[in-house]
């Protein structure tokens, strides 16, 4: 049996890439591999995708009508039961994992290592604090289960090539009736690459000026196969929906290339892009702090740069 258990994140029929990233983290804890647990009302497809990842020992499925929407209050008591024999329980540091894992940790009577970014010992880990302006090394005392959310931008997704067995499970946990799922409203940008997995991300800030102007960014993104993100100021101003926000309170991403257009570079934004391979900044203010972290900086008006890039890169 594996020491490490990973909670799969999925949409019902598609395994989220965060699970493969958690697996890479798990293998730094135990190279032998990890179990993956899938909660859902119909886990078949997702379980097969998880079983195909290299390093998965077993895929445990917990099928139940109540598990259709991943409500923390419903999943946590089941996860606490499934995790009884594991020493490490990992979930992704996405809104799914952030909601579920602390509730589970409390049920197990242990703390949680949030945003685990590096494994520095069997029970020793690093994680960012103060919006990434400091890194702490923490240790979980011997004899306690380690519950963690994994900072997905810090780990590469595990490759495919596994053929783990899929083991259906029954969990005799009593589930509360006090929490009901109503609906999920998505931003609707389904045709574009996902912000969290895209190779290239183009982000716009307050400098973009309006939702209408964001179309310039979308057009360029579509031409080069990029995802589109935004600063908090752009989301707060209503230019684009909340699921596009990058930063401390938005998404933490690690694309190969990140373009920041009209973004000043507040620390809360920068914490979301620190692991980008290359940061390109376009801002008309030469003093903007984004230039202190940019690999390539251009002082210019974004309304001239974006159409020009569209022509030259097309």
């Amino acid at each position: 049996m594996s020491k490490v258990l990973i909670v799969a994140e999925h949409s019902g029929n598609q395994l989220n890439q965060s699970t493969a990233r958690c697996l890479s983290c798990a293998r730094e804890i135990d190279p032998a591999g990890a179990d993956v647990v899938v909660f859902g009302s119909n886990c078949g497809e997702v379980a097969h995708q998880a079983a195909a990842l290299e390093g998965v020992a077993r895929v445990l499925t917990v099928e139940r009508e109540e598990n259709q929407a991943a409500l923390a209050a419903i999943i946590a008591p089941q996860l606490a039961v499934i995790a009884a024999d594991h020493d490490y329980i990992l979930g992704p540091s996405t809104t799914f994992g952030k909601d579920l894992m602390p509730r589970t940790a409390a049920l197990l009577g242990v703390g949680q290592v949030s945003d685990l970014m590096a494994v520095t010992g069997p029970r020793q880990f690093q994680r960012p604090v103060y919006a990434g302006n400091a890194i702490v090394t923490v240790e979980v005392p011997e004899g306690l289960k380690v519950v963690a959310t994994v900072r997905t931008a810090s780990f590469k997704p595990a490759a495919e090539g596994g053929a783990a067995s899929i083991v259906p499970n029954q969990v005799a946990a009593e589930l509360p009736a006090h929490t009901r799922f109503i609906e999920l409203r998505t931003g609707g940008g389904d045709a574009r690459p996902d912000l969290q997995t895209a190779r290239i991300v183009l982000s716009g800030g307050r400098g973009v000026g309006s939702g209408e102007n964001f179309k310039l960014l979308f057009a360029l993104a579509d031409r080069i196969g990029a995802a589109v993100g935004a600063s908090r100021a752009a989301v707060d101003a209503g230019f684009v929906p909340n699921d596009m926000q990058v930063g401390q309170t938005g998404k933490i991403i690690a694309p190969e290339v990140y373009f920041a257009f009209g973004i000043s570079g507040a620390i809360q934004h920068l914490t979301g892009i620190k692991d980008a391979g290359l940061i390109v900044a376009v801002n008309k203010d030469p003093e903007a702090s984004i230039f202190q972290v940019a690999d390539i900086g251009l002082v210019a008006d974004l309304f001239e740069v974006i159409p020009a890039l569209d022509k030259k890169l097309g």
């Binding site: 702490v136 090394t137 979980v140 230039f291 251009l298 030259k312 890169l313």
Partner: peptide
């Protein structure tokens, strides 16, 4: 339940370059 051992500065990013115009940006990319 969790012991904090030490605080450290994050690894700094390497200093980048400034380019003069879009052509230079495309060339750098």
């Amino acid at each position: 339940r969790i012991r904090v051992l030490k605080y450290e500065e994050p690894a700094p990013r390497q200093k980048g370059v400034m380019v003069a115009d879009v052509d230079a940006l495309v060339a750098a990319l």
